[in-house]
Write a protein that binds this DNA or RNA. Structure first.
Lengths: 339, 339
DNA sequence: TCACATTAGGTAAGCGCTTTCCTAGCCACG
DNA sequence: CGTGGCTAGGAAAGCGCTTACCTAATGTGA
């Protein structure tokens, strides 16, 4: 592997000059030397060692992002927003998938710190686990105390700059829609119990229930894993235990699609015999049949905002900045009046 | 930011000893010292500077992966396979999205080289662009000549270790199915013209056409961008230009889903009035209505194999290893006999 | 008791780069 | 022709870590 010294030697200049030419430093250099150095770079196919560069210059430039799983459309969309802003600012983004494992999340914070990132963006639900929350908080504080910046998406339990989607309102909207349609025996396919996203959305639904003079009994709530398979299983469990249900509300679209698939195998038509609604408005929500009634969160926008917070230096100690983003009900074909 | 020297000072030992303890070197160290150092690490919340480490140790460990877009289910699946093997071998994976931009692909090879990765895995279609292909090849050769390893997925135009899906056979299978059902006026929604994936799949379809005594006229082929929107547009164009079509074959599932959506808006039923087939068997292919008849490629498996090739040192100069993987026809509800 | 292994730990030389500071050469001016 | 002010380029000091090599301080055998 050719080094800068090799290039300098070949061009007959000092490493200092070579470095200046290659990096386009502001220091003026004669054209003759410039050409010789550039020629040497070409001949040797020289590429600077990124680690040596990062070690030598002290300023940190990359941004670390921790998400549950980039290939999940929910996070893919958020990531798109994050990337856009980062790229516009000439920053490299390092993405880490925690796969909803708190331990991994902790590890990744360390890893990113080790890689000297300028900022860490943490996207995804928080956990109802005090020990973990505290541990994470400590790590982030330490990181911030060494000059790192932190922004979180949707983790209101973390004090600091944050973009928080109004999950509670989303839950409220979707449940209100169901009650307005005349449903009152509603089954819920929830996400993992210890994710704050799950509990926030549920509490919004509960608020709607109260306002409409109803309840959301625990026996009509099944906890699943936010994926298609567990959604289908939960739908089956719900149907078996509560045959009189007229609507199923899944706390994300994947699970709603799982429910749809299960209903199809049982020959239950949607929305005639059963209403199904989702949450998140992933792109596929339009393409399933019937198209899903769901709640939209401006995911890419949230990503952009979070990255903007993370990049924005100026916070003159005026406390954390919290940006709330709203939820919007999307009416499609999967919800109708009860049979 | 605490450094190793800080830790050493605090523990009252030399940096060498601290380093050995922290990295679990084989050199024996007294327990008393070990405890003091570990305590100092804890107190200072010390995290080694990854760049300094990578610079100091010479052996490279991370693996670079270049894909079109991880959030595309096709690549998400491949990436899953890649990650699995990498993680099992304790390797870190750096993922780069080229968004099908050849220039970016070239840049990323440089970037990964700069980051001293041990191997580069290139996944995704090749391009019918000799200039680019040559440039890429040169860069990869240079990289290999400095000890880097390279493995490609689905780019048969690159000489070297490769995992190549049988796109031609996939095209043959899907077209044969259509002809067997009795279709002979088939419209094709192809991918970008200069991707080898597109031409490979098309040539398989042509072979099937020949065997069944038919043709695939150019006017019944619409080139799109492998995404839903362009698939819908292409379907519209096809329908307008060739109203007598009885089947539409899209060269990936996203475009097939776009076609399905368009057909729905026009009130054309599938498969009664029009057969639609896809390619890739992405997870959503099961969930759209009607469920897509398509071709399955063992994507995750391909990722695993490619990473295995990339990690496997031993290749004693016995030439490139090529692993071919088969395609499989998946029959679902979207294909039926012509009206 | 002495020479010699054997050990635990330290010293210092890098890894490949950036950047501050310095020097030598040049010009203009008096 | 001497001085000062520029300028282009080089020397060298790190950045934070690892590790080959060295040095005391032990333990061993004759």
């Amino acid at each position: 592997m050719a080094t800068l010294a090799d290039v300098a030697r070949r061009a007959g200049v000092s490493p200092a000059t070579a470095s200046r030419i290659i990096n386009g430093s502001s220091k003026p250099v004669t054209d003759a030397l410039r050409e010789r150095v550039l020629a040497a770079v070409e001949e040797l196919q020289y590429v600077p060692n990124a680690h040596a560069q990062l070690l030598a210059r002290s300023h940190r430039s990359a941004i670390g992002v921790i998400v549950h799983d980039v290939s999940d459309p929910y996070f893919a969309e958020i990531t798109r927003g994050l990337q856009r802003v980062a790229t516009d600012n000439g920053r490299l983004v390092i993405i880490c998938n925690s796969y909803r494992d708190p331990v991994k999340e902790l590890e990744y914070v360390e890893l990113l710190r080790a890689h000297q990132v300028a900022a860490i963006v943490l996207a995804g639900s928080g956990y109802h686990d005090e020990g973990f929350t505290k541990a994470l908080d400590t790590k982030l504080r330490v990181y911030e105390s060494t000059g790192g910046r932190v922004a979180v998406i949707g983790r209101h339990e973390h004090a600091g700059d944050a973009v928080v989607p109004d999950n509670e309102m989303g839950g409220y909207l979707i449940a209100s829609e169901l009650y307005a349609l005349g449903h009152d025996r509603i089954g819920v396919i929830a996400g993992p119990k210890l994710l704050t996203t799950t509990t926030d959305r549920l509490s919004g639904m509960r608020r709607a229930a109260r306002e409409h003079g109803h309840k959301l009994p625990a026996r009509r709530i099944e906890y699943a894993d936010f994926d298609r398979g567990s959604g289908a299983a939960a739908a089956a469990a719900l149907l078996d235990a509560e045959p009189e249900l007229t609507a199923i509300a899944a706390l994300n679209d994947s699970m709603a699609i799982g429910a749809l698939a299960l209903l199809r195998t049982r020959g239950i038509t949607v929305p005639e015999q059963m209403t199904v609604v989702g949450f998140d408005d992933m792109p596929v929500a339009r393409d399933v049949t019937p198209a899903l009634t769901t709640v939209r969160l401006p995911l890419a926008d949230m990503g952009e905002r979070a990255m903007t917070l993370a990049l924005d230096e100026h916070r003159d100690g005026q406390g954390p900045r919290i940006e709330e983003v709203g939820a919007e009900l999307i009416r499609r074909a999967s919800a109708g009046p009860p049979r």
